[in-house]
């Protein structure tokens, strides 16, 4: 510490001396370089003022006493700046630490998501999920029961950030711990509702849509809990129909009932499930209309399900100037044959 001070003092002395002799821009450039060095060595503002005072006194021996006193005065003022500077440094270190903890949380959250998309020759599935911040409040899940059914969940935890991420793990383990035999969507949501109601604070809510796709009969049975309605797309008529559901948001009432619906699919038909981050895309021109969203999907209809969701995301990302307002999750299922 003392040693660096001495070498910094020598360095400063020679730069200042050079400047006093030549008044050149080159010396000022050296001064700029020197200030980088100071910051690197964590020198506080009051130490720098003192360094200047000491060096100036050596270089200009006949400084008037008023100037020396004024320098001491400046030193007093700079102590406060020094404190603020050091506090700032410590807060910055803490922020870096928090950020790295958050990055670990985000990675753990990624591990809660399915490792792979179920593969089937009759059903093509595409999924795109992007967090607005580091951690996401959106969740999706697949359940393959090996019995010609694929269970599909899309959930949105109201609220973003860490609290949302924490309750996501609860949703996952609640679904995973449900009985082995295939559950009807309404029964599954009733079970989840009970878990959520008992375990999370009353100011947090979870919306969810859960559906079961029958790979043999090609029907999609679904129930919703206050979730953004999905779409059914009829390939031959090129029409979209909203998948409206009646059912309360999870966690509000102890005994909630969820109505069950069924949609039959012909080859080429799509089921589209999403979180409200997709429809709440905002730009200066306002929210995106659901009709605009379906227009984009129709445009990419000839592509694979995964390519469709990727393309929709790219367009909406552009639309919002690459500033995601809310977590984005879009899932598309297509009956192949």
């Amino acid at each position: 510490m003392e040693k660096t001070d001495v070498s910094l003092q020598e360095m400063y002395k020679s730069i200042l001396e050079g400047y006093l002799h030549t008044g050149s821009e080159h010396a000022l450039y050296e001064a700029q370089q020197f200030s980088r060095q100071l910051i690197k060595e964590n020198m506080t503002p009051e130490e720098m003022v003192n360094l200047h005072v000491v060096v100036a006194r050596e270089l200009i021996p006949d400084l008037p006493s008023e100037v020396l006193e004024a320098n001491d005065f400046l030193l007093e003022v700079m102590v406060g700046y020094g404190l603020a500077y050091r506090e700032h440094q410590s807060l910055r270190d803490r922020q870096q630490q928090l950020e790295s903890e958050l990055a670990v949380a985000a990675q753990m959250q990624q591990e809660l998501l399915p490792k792979r998309i179920p593969k089937s020759p009759v059903l093509d599935i595409g999924i795109k999920t992007v967090a607005a911040d580091v951690v996401s409040g959106d969740y999706y899940h697949f359940i393959e029961d090996g019995n010609d059914h694929i269970g599909i969940a899309v959930a949105d935890i109201i609220g973003k950030g860490v609290p949302a991420a924490l309750s996501m793990s609860m949703i996952k383990y609640a679904i995973d711990s449900l009985p082995e035999q295939r559950l009807q969507p309404s029964a599954l949501l009733e079970n989840l509702n009970r878990v959520v109601e008992q375990n999370i604070s009353s100011n947090m809510f979870i919306t969810m849509i859960y559906g079961s796709y029958d790979l043999k009969e090609h029907k999609f049975q679904y129930s919703g809990a206050g979730h953004e309605p999905g779409f059914y797309y009829n390939h031959s008529s090129r029409q979209f129909v909203d998948l409206n559901t009646k059912g309360l948001v999870l966690g509000v009432m102890k005994k909630a009932v969820f109505k069950e619906y069924e949609q039959k699919l012909s080859p080429g038909d799509l089921i589209i499930l999403l979180s409200d981050g997709v429809t709440e895309c905002r730009a200066e021109s306002g929210f995106i209309e659901r009709s605009e969203l379906t227009e984009i999907i129709r445009k990419y209809e000839h592509l694979s399900a995964q390519e469709i969701v990727e393309n929709v995301y790219s367009e909406l990302e552009q639309f919002q100037n690459f500033q995601l307002q809310d977590d984005f999750t879009l899932m598309i299922l297509r009956r192949e044959v």
Binding site: V79, G80, G82, L83, A84, Y85, R86, E87, H88, S90, L91, R94
Partner: peptide, 20 residues
């Protein structure tokens, strides 16, 4: 803790005293 303040001072308070 740094950043905690009741008197609105920047960098001051007890953490400041500790640093000084």
């Amino acid at each position: 803790e740094d950043g905690y303040t009741t008197s609105g001072g920047l960098g001051a308070g007890l953490p400041g005293v500790k640093r000084l």
